[in-house]
Design a binder for these strands. Structure first.
Length: 760
DNA sequence: TCATTACTCCTTTTT
DNA sequence: GGAGTAATGA
């Protein structure tokens, strides 16, 4: 029987989730419990029972990768009988699709361009300038952040109340947001947030259209529901209102995108949002050993706001303890990890089964250095994306200008790259004409070269450039699109610019341009390619090669590896100080969920390390092990002597460091204290001298304190011989407030804070 | 218009 | 410490 094929491999709760097709359903799927399997089987089930044809199922994911994976797996379980699911994709791509169909209703044309962050920022800068707002006092980036937040919340400029508005240049955030939207409309462009916001608005305001989609989407499936923001939530609600067949899969313990507007509340509230909702918990974990799961469960149990589920190990193997190691600094950390990798390798482990997950991308550097040095092949996942590279963006901008020369933002980007003598003053003149006549820059340029407003050389150069664009536009219909791109890059002098560039990155950039042309060749037309570029930022890389993976914890969600290394578990770095400062306890909980995500990536072995010293903004700081290390139950971890002996000290340090914040924390969480007393007894061990040095510049200190510090003069004088715990003896060569530049006898010239230095 | 210098912010995470 | 940007001068 055909049905059994995909139902066979499912456990009881998975099967229940798959077979509950009617009405609202929330599947709480813990890490490694077969979430994707449930989703794909469910789709297969719907299709093979003929409850819906593939085109009547809306299935949304967050990443293109997840969408691809789902498509692939559905194809596998149904054989070839499923041909394309038009409504399976990311929130953004489906939003874009709907928006293109009804663009006029949103003040756009159906061929609108999708802006990236660069363009957004450029636009916002222009608006801030034209409104005579001081860019220094009110940074464009801040406004961009506010606008994004508005959009994440599903708010149009006119819907923002006084109280919701931000303190940006006299509460002008919403007003500027309105101006920004107007500009976007004039430019026939939408930013990322618009793809959702505008399509949401469309559905809200046009019942006929809403009706149409409600009738198309007989079944709605949502992946990673815990990551949805308000706009996405409202969008889903509207679409599911009619027939209520909405199945959301998610894990509140893996909600790690709060900073991007995700609302864990959406998942916590599901039952009250959808009365009569069925809830299925998937708790059987098929990934990790018992000890790793125990560590993960212990850790996440410190979170208060959760729906509560317990991961049960399906793999009956205790496995190794979680290894906790302390190291002197980041360099040693990288060495320890690579040594361990090499040891594993010699025992037969494969490099592709090993991953290093960091909290922040700056941590990657030490590892890369070390890998290069020891010749270990590695790959960075989610690093600087292909389409975000400068040369690729430039090239694409050229293509976009040829495709639509009224794209002012792109034209501005390339008008003087390579240098062709069209500088700022010319550009400003163009902008002025464009504004006053309400035309695009391109048209303004055409106009200006007919007049005498600009002089000799500049005029000729501008005329030449405009002329070239016209020529390329003419060639668009007659030549093959790949040839046209080659021609544009050559004739514009862009390729030549990099050929003449002597910097070491130049050859790589030329390679990338070649790669880009190869990519373009894979598409039928330029427009098809452009749409792909704006929605699919990543470029698939081969995951098969024998390489260690290096990535951030965020990009590791959804992946699994035999061996996981989690470096940098230090207070301030992880949990991240800024998270804590900005969002207090909920920030801490999100960090903890991130830690939980990290731990649950591991199948067999897990190493957590922390460095006692780390360089922050070029200055050396001493650090304390992360509280998350404490929170992993004793019986699941194995740690070195250093950690046990000094832990009591760390506990105190941490508490004084977060005095205000911890007050609430300990009150809310009895476990924390109980656990600490139970597991940690004062050992009476003497704390090494360097640790007793009083800190006066921890990562964050209240403003008052810092002020005093800056005003205070250092007692050191130039030429003095001093001692530093890390670098040894040295001589002060320069003093800048509390920063001392010291020429160390063994480690060379370094800048350090005076508090780490003793007079010798 | 372009090159050099000074200054800034940064290091959370991304569709 | 270092990248990116704005200000400054040639």
């Amino acid at each position: 029987m055909i049905i059994s094929k995909y139902l066979d491999g499912l456990n009881k709760s998975q099967k229940e989730a798959v077979e509950s097709t009617e009405g609202p359903l929330l599947v709480l799927a813990g890490a490694g419990t077969g979430k994707t399997k449930v989703l794909t089987s469910k789709i297969a089930h719907l299709i093979s029972l003929r409850k819906a044809s593939p085109s009547n199922i809306l299935a949304v994911t967050f990443t293109n990768k997840a969408a691809r994976e789902m498509k692939y797996r559905i194809g596998q379980s149904l054989g070839s009988m499923v041909e394309g699911m038009p409504w399976l994709g990311t929130f953004h791509s489906i939003g874009a699709k709907i928006l293109r169909i009804h663009a006029e209703l949103a003040g756009l044309k159906s061929d609108f361009t999708i802006l990236d962050t660069d363009d957004q920022l450029r636009l916002i800068k222009q608006i801030i300038k034209s409104e005579n707002i001081d860019e220094k006092r009110w940074p464009p980036k801040l406004l961009l952040g506010y606008i994004d937040t508005f959009k994440n919340k599903g708010l149009m400029p006119t819907e923002i109340t006084y109280n919701q508005d931000y303190q940006f240049a006299n509460r002008k955030a919403s007003e500027l947001y309105g101006l920004y939207q107007n500009r976007l409309s004039i430019l026939n462009s939408a930013d990322f947030g618009d793809l959702l916001l505008l399509s949401l608005n469309l559905l809200k305001r046009n019942t006929d259209i809403l009706n149409k989609y409600q009738n198309i989407f007989l079944y709605i499936l949502v992946d990673e529901y815990q990551d949805t923001n308000v706009a996405q939530y409202l969008w889903l609600r509207l679409l599911s209102q009619k027939n209520s067949n909405i199945a959301c899969v998610g894990d509140d313990d893996q909600s790690i995108y709060g900073w991007r507007g995700a609302e864990v509340d959406n998942i916590l509230r599901f039952e009250s949002d959808y009365p009569g909702a069925k809830i299925v918990k998937l708790e059987e974990n098929y990934r990790s050993t018992e000890k790793i799961l125990g560590a993960a469960s212990g850790l996440i149990s410190y979170n208060k706001d959760r729906l509560g589920k317990t991961l049960i190990a399906n793999i009956k193997d205790e496995g190794e303890e979680v290894h906790i190691r302390s190291v002197w600094d980041a360099e040693n950390e990288a060495r320890l990890v690579t040594d361990e990798i090499e040891a594993k390798q010699s025992k037969g482990a494969k490099l592709e089964d090993i991953a290093i997950l960091v909290r922040a991308s700056f941590q990657m550097r030490e590892f890369e250095d070390r890998f290069i040095m020891s010749g270990i092949p590695y790959r960075v996942i989610g690093g600087p994306r292909f389409y975000e590279r400068q040369e690729i963006k430039d090239a694409i901008s050229y293509i976009q200008v040829v495709s639509n020369s009224n794209n002012d933002l792109k034209l501005e980007r390339i008008i003087n790259i390579p240098r062709r003598g069209i500088g700022n003053s010319t550009l400003q003149a163009l902008n002025k004409i464009a504004r006053s006549n309400n035309i695009s820059l391109f048209l303004a340029a055409k106009q200006i070269i007919e007049t005498d407003e600009i002089r000799g050389q500049t005029k000729i150069k501008l005329a030449n450039f405009i002329n070239s664009i016209e020529l390329w536009k003419d060639a668009k219909s007659s030549s093959h699109h790949t040839d046209l791109v080659k021609r544009i890059l050559d004739e514009s002098g862009y390729t030549e610019m990099w050929q003449n560039d002597k910097s070491p990155t130049a050859s790589g950039r030329l390679e990338n341009l070649k790669e880009l042309i190869g990519q373009i060749d894979g598409f039928d037309s330029i427009d098809g390619f452009l749409d792909h570029v704006s929605l699919v930022m990543e470029l698939e890389s081969d995951t098969s090669a024998e390489k260690v993976s290096l990535m951030t914890l965020h990009s590791a969600k959804g992946l699994e590896f035999e061996n996981i290394f989690l470096p940098g578990w230090e207070d301030g770095l992880f949990p991240n100080q800024r998270s804590l400062d900005e969002k207090g306890n909920s920030g801490l909980e999100e960090e903890r969920r991130l830690a939980h995500v990290g731990v649950t990536r591991a199948k067999k072995s897990l190493w957590i390390t922390y460095a006692l010293n780390r360089r922050v903004y070029g200055l050396w700081q001493q650090s304390i092990p992360s509280r998350f290390i404490d929170e992993i139950p004793e019986e699941y971890k194995d740690f070195d002597a250093e950690y046990i002996n000094t832990n009591n000290y760390y506990q105190q340090e941490r508490q004084s460091k977060y005095k205000n914040f911890d007050a609430g924390y300990t009150k809310n969480n009895n476990n924390y204290q109980k656990e600490s007393q139970f597991t940690r007894e004062a050992t009476g061990t003497k704390i090494p001298a360097w640790k007793r040095i009083k800190k006066n510049n921890s990562v964050t200190i209240n403003a008052e304190f810092q002020e005093i510090n800056i005003k205070r003069k250092t007692n050191f004088i130039e030429g003095q011989r001093v001692f530093h715990e890390k670098f040894g003896y040295g001589k002060i060569i320069d003093i800048n407030q509390l920063k001392l530049e010291i020429d160390f006898e063994k480690s060379g010239i370094k800048t350090v804070l005076e508090s780490y230095v003793k007079i010798h």
